[in-house]
């Protein structure tokens, strides 16, 4: 494992991603749901919305880093509201 050059922050990051994926898998098995059509006018399930959230958050973080000279955790707050919006309306 040493060759992978792990650090605590990256390990935590991947652990959170893995935990989220496991949670959503368990939820999909325990509480199955029908896809719905939101403002993007595409059918989405919870998993799709999670994917859109994660991908969008990556870009939000990059934009925050590139455009503003303020602490990075600010981007996480924006991402939180973005995630709420995606899960509510997409």
């Amino acid at each position: 494992m040493e060759w992978m050059a792990w650090t605590w922050p990256t390990a935590t990051f991947f652990a959170i991603i893995a935990a989220t994926l496991i949670t959503f898998t368990v939820m999909a098995i325990k509480y199955p749901e029908a896809p719905r059509v939101g403002i993007l006018r595409i059918e989405t399930t919870r998993g799709d919305r999670l994917f859109i959230t994660l991908l969008g958050s990556a870009f939000l973080n990059l934009a925050w880093l590139g455009l503003f000279d303020v602490p990075q955790w600010g981007a996480l707050i924006v991402c939180f509201f973005y995630a709420l919006a995606v899960f509510r309306w997409v």
Partner: peptide, 20 residues
């Protein structure tokens, strides 16, 4: 696994010798 390694590399600096 390679993708995870790339993420690990992206937050570190190295001069070789597997020291980060």
């Amino acid at each position: 696994i390679p993708l995870m390694t790339v993420v690990n590399y992206s937050v570190q600096d190295t001069f070789g010798n597997n020291q980060f």
